[in-house]
Design a protein around this nucleic acid. Structure first.
Lengths: 195, 195
DNA sequence: CCTACCGATCGGTAGG
DNA sequence: CCTACCGATCGGTAGG
């Protein structure tokens, strides 16, 4: 009796959920809200998903995978640290651009995962961040980068990158290349004009 | 019959709420959770507060005031744009350091305000951001700063600054001076070593 | 995919 | 500040 193929319906649920979680946050989005937006009765959702949290898990771990695959081939490339960082930033921004809603959920609502998924998630995110850390460390060691405090620097770069999901909210015409270029330029060269 | 003076109790409620909202988020924190942590029955909270949302409002607007008063005297100072930006960043980080929990709520849970407070909040935050924008514009006009994209630059600086509340979570020994110096240095000079 | 319904929990009030 | 309680809403299940 299904009017829509099961697979398509499940994808639709995920897509709508991503958007609603992003707009209102995970705890403030009820399954009734979600069902209403999807166009089915609340109970019908459970034909396609196991629980509300399963949706959150799918979103968070799905996007984590995207972030990883974006930089997978980059790590062992034999290029200078600044070029490597530039490429990593570009990849990161690209993933966010292609999944703006899911990225927002990834950054804001991951904390509503429960154990053991929560620890698993933190671990994944940690190892992703470590890739960036190692690039910056390499740059410092080889004398390409100069920083006051390594920890603060790495976290600052991450916070700057992670904020970019805000730029694709209503797709105001921001192009990812614009953003990653500008971001890379600011991080690598700073604000002050070089005379 | 009050065991604790009304004023002190109200302050305690706000303080505990800040911490719980920060840890779990506003929607995921129930009044029962809050009452339990405060050490009273849930109904007793309403002798000190009007509603759950009133607490959120107090937190968000209180910290907004702090941010403003921190840079109030800075705007008309006759100093170079880079020095002005450095001072503004220092003030911003200082406010966050002194109110780490409230700042986190300010950055993450403001969206759960309802109208008309929501619009009021957005306006306040906008005018605060405009102070930073004008500093950066001034720097560009006077040839002190060089940027690829003004909008991206301003937002990036904000995202970098706003992330700093994360560094005071468990007060891991980060000193605000350390953070604001390192942050200012990265934003002004960039990563790349100047030979 | 729907109707009907569950126990649990929500923010908040009445009344003392 | 507490006891007692409200209607509304929550995530989810039974059964077809």
């Amino acid at each position: 009796m299904d009017r829509i193929p099961t697979k398509a319906r499940k994808e639709q649920i995920t897509k709508v959920a991503q958007n609603m979680f992003r707009e209102r946050g995970y705890p403030a989005t009820s399954m009734r809200d979600l069902a209403n937006e999807v166009g089915v009765m609340p109970a019908s959702l459970y034909n396609h998903i196991k629980s509300k949290e399963e949706i959150l898990e799918k979103i968070c771990f799905g996007i984590a995978e995207d972030f990883f695959s974006g930089i997978k081939n980059l790590m062992n490339e034999d290029i200078a640290a600044d070029e490597k960082l530039r490429k990593a930033i570009t990849s990161h921004v690209e993933v966010i651009k292609n999944n703006a809603d899911a990225s927002a959920v990834f950054f804001l609502d991951w904390r509503h995962l429960s154990e053991p998924k929560l620890s698993e998630f933190k671990e994944l995110r940690n190892s992703y961040e470590n890739v960036f850390k190692s690039i910056i460390k390499e740059g410092i060691e080889k004398g390409v980068f100069s920083v006051l405090d390594e920890k603060v620097t790495v976290l600052t770069i991450f916070s700057a990158m992670n904020w970019t999901y805000n730029w694709y909210k209503t797709s105001k015409g921001f192009r990812p290349k614009e953003i990653s270029d500008s971001l890379s330029n600011l991080i690598l060269n700073g604000l002050i004009k070089k005379s």
